[in-house]
């Protein structure tokens, strides 16, 4: 079977997937982000078969992404690269993939076991989101857990803890005619002097979408709609807390701090307690008009 490279365009960044020995395939959500051949991609991903053993003996373990229920990945660091061990989300004792990222964050090598059909799926969850997260670090962007709706003029971002109503909020605005950019994971990116919000591939099909970033709301459920503007260091720290980040090194933290400081200097940030019905739309629009 001929080995074909796959090119993706995610949030305006170009990615080239390069098979080495077996053909590669991408999950459904990525298919809408496939683009034609790009001569100078922002990042390349070489895709290898098999999980190499005995790795990271010269590396230091620097980060564990796990919670009480799941272990997602571990990160190792040496002078030349970062190493990632990705765990099977159904069985956390089993390694799903191993990956290496060059020191300039531009070149990945991803090792995966072949599917029964003899193919590799290099961007299987959570490898795909990790690639996107590290793509943002040196490229004037950040990934954030948030929803965003677009009314054709303004892009409103709603962020908060799980269960605080990000999806509920986006559905309320969508029922009023807004376009949902995404309701879970976004890339905020600086383009020229302005900030824009992009969706990223999910596990379900969706086309690439983009909106200008007009406002950020830190949301929570409340007995009545209420709002308060937040500024300065508090705004930066509150927004930063919902960004997807691996804070094991100073460079990554400084990069995120600088980017979010830029976002908050230009974009109004507010605490929004809301009642989950249409009344919140009029409430927000009225607040923005003041």
């Amino acid at each position: 079977m001929a080995l074909k490279n796959i090119f993706l365009n995610i949030a305006g960044y170009s990615i080239e997937l390069i098979p080495q020995t077996l053909p590669i395939e991408i999950e459904t959500g990525y298919k809408y982000f496939v683009t034609g051949k790009i001569n100078k991609p922002d990042i390349t991903i070489q895709c290898f078969e098999g999980i190499p053993e005995g790795l990271f003996t010269d590396s230091k373990a620097v980060f564990e992404a796990e919670n009480d229920d799941q272990k997602f990945y571990s990160i190792y660091e040496n002078k030349d690269s970062l190493g990632f061990v990705i765990y099977n989300q159904q069985n956390k004792t089993e390694i799903q993939q191993v990956a290496f990222l060059s020191a300039d964050f531009k070149h990945w090598k991803i090792y995966s076991a072949a599917t029964p059909q003899g193919r590799l799926v290099p961007l299987s969850f959570p490898m795909g989101p990790i690639v996107m997260q590290y793509l943002t670090i040196k490229n004037d962007a950040v990934m954030i857990h948030a929803s965003c709706v677009y009314d054709g003029e303004k892009g409103r971002v709603f962020t908060g803890f799980s269960g605080n109503g990000k999806s509920t909020m986006s559905q309320i605005w969508a029922s009023d005619g807004d376009l949902i950019i995404n309701d879970d994971r976004l890339i905020i990116k600086k383009e020229g002097n302005d900030f824009f919000v992009h969706n990223t591939p999910m596990y379900y099909p969706d086309i690439p979408k983009k909106a200008p970033l007009s406002s950020i709301y830190l949301i929570s459920h409340a007995p009545e709609n209420r709002i308060a503007k937040i500024t300065g260091a508090v705004a930066v720290s509150r927004v930063l807390a919902f960004c997807i980040q691996n804070n094991f090194n100073e460079y990554i933290i400084n990069n995120n701090l600088e980017f979010i400081s830029g976002v908050c200097a230009k974009t109004p940030v507010s605490d929004l307690g809301f009642v989950p019905d249409r009344s919140v739309i009029d409430f927000v629009l009225n607040y923005e008009d003041k």
């Binding site: 373990a61 980060f63 930063l240 094991f248 701090l257």
Partner: peptide, 14 residues
Amino acid sequence: VGDELIIVPLTGNV
């Protein structure tokens, strides 16, 4: 940021 300071921990876990 302005007259204030943000302090972020270097950390090895989520």
